[in-house]
Amino acid sequence: MKERYKKYTVEIPEEMALPFAGIVEAPKVNGEQPMMLTGGWRIYRPVVDHDKCVMCKSCVLACPDATVLLVDGGQKIGFNLDYCKGCGLCTWVCPVNAIDRVPEIDFEDGVPFQDALFLLPHVEALYAD
């Protein structure tokens, strides 16, 4: 089977590989774009059961914000919880039901705490005594 399709495949060197199309690259530094922090939208947090996970990476492709990360040298699935907005698509696409949705309020941490939404310098004065 592999030989049959070999003539259609192209070997791409790693330095020429592109990020997958149609998706903006995930923010590398957390808090880089404070007005776009969407972690606070999340009501259900995705939690991976690593025993069930078969590393098909469907969730990596499905995530609209590119917040599903490959951690431990690409061996495990992790999440960038500062930007994950809890849409649940990763749970939906998982073929082995390895990703659970757990209520965010039951965890102690994981959400970046913002003092206000859209805080601009001239707005700050209106909140003062």
């Binding site: 209520p103 965010e104 913002q114 003092d115 909140y127």
Partner: peptide, 24 residues
Amino acid sequence: ENHRPNIVGVCEATIMKGINVCKG
């Protein structure tokens, strides 16, 4: 906008984790 509210209601408790609902 109500910058200095007297009463704050939160319809979904998880909102409090990410934002200071009582600001001002």
